[in-house]
Simulated scan of single mutants.
Amino acid sequence: MSNQILTKDNIVLHASFLNKEEAIRATGQILVEQGYVEPSYIEKMLEREELTSTYMGNFVAIPHGTEDAKKSVKCSGLSIIQVPHGVDFGDGNVVKVLIGIAGKDGEHLDILSQIAIVCSEEENIQRVVEASSADEIINLFSEVK
C-alpha cells in the first residue's frame, strides 16, 4: 500500500474504548487529523454503522462513510487502531482491529481488496493485535501485492 494512504501517524496501538461509537469516532478522527477527510465524515461513519454493521468477522471492523460521504473525502487514506482487549460491536462481536477507510475516486475498492487479503488470514489479524510498533503493521500491509 502507498505510504501516502497508510503512515505511522495513521496507526494507534494499545487503545481501549467504552463502546463502538467511541471507537468509530476515534478511527474517523485520525482520518480528519491526517487531512484525508472533512470532520463531517465521522458522522457519516456512524450513520453507516446504523445502516449495517461494519464488523467483518475475525475481530475486524472497517468503519467507513455512507455513499453520500464521498464529498467529504479529500484524498484516500486509512487509519488503523489496535484494541488488544477488544470493544463490543454488538451481537457478541468483539473488535480488536479497527480499519477506517476514506476512498477518493473509486480507490476504496482497491484499498478494500488489499485489506481483505490481509484480514482473511487469522494469523495476520493476530500480528496486528500483538504488534508493538506502527512499523510492524505498515510492513504487514505493504507485503500485500
Results as ranks from 00 to 15, higher is better:
Ser2Lys: 13
Ser2His: 10
Ser2Phe: 12
Leu6Phe: 12
Leu6Asn: 04
Leu13Met: 07
Leu13Lys: 02
Leu13Ala: 06
Ala15Leu: 11
Ala15His: 09
Ala15Tyr: 08
Leu18Phe: 10
Asn19Thr: 13
Lys20Gln: 15
Glu22Ala: 15
Glu22Arg: 01
Glu22Trp: 05
Ala26Leu: 13
Gly28Ile: 14
Ile30Tyr: 14
Leu31Met: 06
Val32Met: 04
Val32Gln: 03
Val32Asp: 01
Val32Asn: 01
Gln34Ile: 01
Gly35Arg: 12
Tyr36Ala: 06
Tyr36Ser: 06
Tyr41Asn: 01
Ile42Arg: 00
Glu43Ser: 10
Glu43Leu: 02
Glu43Ile: 01
Lys44Gly: 01
Met45Leu: 07
Leu46Ile: 11
Leu46Met: 05
Glu47Ala: 12
Arg48Thr: 05
Arg48Asn: 09
Glu49Asn: 07
Leu51Met: 04
Thr52Arg: 07
Thr52Val: 10
Tyr55Ser: 06
Phe59Ile: 04
Phe59Met: 12
Val60Tyr: 02
Pro63Arg: 12
Pro63Ser: 13
Pro63Gly: 10
His64Thr: 08
His64Gln: 09
Gly65Arg: 10
Glu67Met: 12
Asp68Val: 14
Asp68Gly: 06
Ala69Met: 10
Lys70His: 03
Lys70Ser: 07
Lys71Pro: 00
Ser72His: 12
Ser76His: 05
Ser76Asn: 09
Gly77Trp: 06
Gly77Ala: 10
Leu78Phe: 11
Leu78Arg: 06
Ile80Pro: 07
Ile80Asp: 10
Ile80Trp: 09
Ile81Lys: 15
Gln82Leu: 15
Gln82Thr: 13
Val83Asp: 14
Val83Ala: 15
Pro84Ile: 15
Val87Phe: 14
Phe89Gln: 04
Phe89Trp: 13
Gly90Glu: 08
Asp91Met: 05
Asp91Leu: 06
Gly92Cys: 05
Gly92Trp: 14
Lys96Ser: 14
Gly100Arg: 04
Ile101Met: 09
Ala102Met: 01
Gly103Ser: 08
Lys104Leu: 00
Asp105Gln: 10
His108Tyr: 12
His108Val: 02
His108Ala: 02
His108Ser: 03
His108Phe: 07
Leu112Gln: 10
Ser113Phe: 10
Ile115Glu: 04
Ala116Ser: 14
Ile117Ser: 10
Ile117Lys: 14
Ile117Asp: 11
Cys119Lys: 03
Ser120Asn: 11
Glu122Val: 02
Glu123Pro: 00
Glu123Val: 09
Glu123Thr: 11
Arg127Val: 03
Val128Pro: 03
Glu130Met: 11
Ala131Leu: 07
Ser133Pro: 12
Asp135Arg: 09
Ile138Phe: 08
Phe141His: 08
Glu143Asn: 11
Glu143Trp: 02
Val144Leu: 07
Val144His: 05
Lys145Val: 12
Lys145Phe: 03
